[in-house]
Design a protein around this nucleic acid. Structure first.
Lengths: 239, 239
DNA sequence: GTCCGGACGCTTGTATACTAGTATTTCTCG
DNA sequence: CGAGAAATACTAGTATACAAGCGTCCGGAC
């Protein structure tokens, strides 16, 4: 494992890497977070700041900035003078993340159902069609991106743009789990069906229904935990 | 403004400053955040990394780590090659923070009302008595600390320890506002009364009542915004 | 053969030197 | 005297050097 890290979406940091420009920290943060979510950096993996810097073509300084944020997200564990490790999946952390996500998204979708306008619903409809196409191609990567966009649209519709970043950071723990469970093909179309049901309720300005359907949809993922834990016991915490 | 920054709770970084030990970043982060909330670093103030380092007795590196987290919290604005500034209060950011706080705390208190046990309620009761004593002395600083502890207890009772840190980061924006409105003495006792009402509902295992009272209590702060904005127009964003 | 000890190599944390970009200030020219 | 341009004094971003703690591995003594 000494190869340069293949960055999703092309290796385009050449521009942002030059000094005197904008910080490359946020870029590295997003890239590393993606690698962790996709389990290309598996739970328990040791991360050397110097090695990461070499493989990413930057020095330790911006790498440390990214790792600091990942530590705030509890995605990596930094033990001084010992090392930095990709955090193992903690069922408690997943449960907490689920709690946060459910609280924020369900509250937001209630407001969104009241504020929904034609233009926003058209955007969401377009997203749903793209999801269906991705599922038709069994293109999990594309679908997961569209899924994120869908939920972000629902959130932003509430008129509180700061909510999504918070939700996203919590959601990462859930995405990490889901990444391991997205193997069954009919699972995907079930998700898209649920999305459409939520969108319909929002478009119909029905907060109660929207919240109920969304809550059920969000909890579906969590039910996969025991199965995944059996398949990848080494990805989970000891307790 | 070239004096060493007086750190709340004593200037004890001597131990943590020594290299090879635990990072001093989190400490600096908490100290700076406190200074911003207390408006000792007023909105719009220019923060020089080098000057902060000198005044805090450390180099730029840990200062930058702290400022990075404050930037994530939107408490400072970093403009590359120009400077770092204490963010002005944004009514939109306050509204978003209120949304997040209300979602998380109200959902948590519902769960807490179901899980409340004797021991936890005794802790909360003790906290309430301390609040009353602080109000009797008109000791705003002590009361605000106790207020934080009270809400954290309510949150933690839900059994999701990761919720409070998220809530705390959002709450900072609200604390900053409240810091400017805590001038009226009867305001304090109103708050303590509301706290007791919430605690009673939780102790009685009444989620609906607990949520309703808490929500009303949380919204009380927000109603002060226009008055504060009149008193400190320069603390707020332009638009 | 076993156990203890020291040296070495690794880690993260911190300090400092350097780069490039921005704003201001000052000097020169019209 | 005014206006424009160059020089200067800052800024944050990055790279690198140094400090100090921890674990491992190897060698020697018993």
């Amino acid at each position: 494992m000494a190869e340069p890290i293949p960055i999703r979406g092309g290796d385009a940091p050449e521009e942002s890497r030059r000094p005197g420009r904008k910080s490359s920290g946020p870029y590295l943060y997003a890239a590393l977070r993606d690698l962790i979510v996709r389990a290309e950096l598996p739970p328990g993996e040791r991360l050397s700041e110097t090695e990461l810097g070499d493989r990413l073509g930057v020095s330790r300084t911006p790498v440390r900035e990214a790792l600091g944020r990942l530590r705030d997200d509890r995605l990596v564990e930094v033990r001084p003078q010992i090392g930095t490790f990709v955090a193992r999946i903690s069922p408690a952390a997943v449960s907490d993340a689920q709690f946060i996500r459910e609280s924020l998204e369900c509250t937001a979708v209630r407001v969104s159902a009241e504020l929904a306008d034609e233009e926003s619903m058209a955007q969401i409809e377009e997203n749903l069609r793209a999801q269906e196409r991705a599922v038709g191609r069994t293109d999990i990567d594309s679908w997961q991106l569209l899924d994120d966009t869908f939920h972000r649209h629902l959130c932003d519709l509430s008129g509180h743009p700061a909510v999504w970043p918070v939700n996203e950071r919590a959601k990462t723990h859930i995405n990490r789990l889901r990444r391991l469970s997205l193997t069954m093909p009919d699972y995907l179309s079930t998700m898209v069906d649920a999305h459409r049901a939520v969108a319909d309720a929002v478009g119909a300005h029905d907060p109660d229904s929207a919240e109920a359907v969304l809550r059920e949809h969000l909890r579906a993922v969590l039910r996969e935990v025991p199965r995944i834990r059996e398949q990848h016991p080494d990805y989970f915490e000891e307790p």
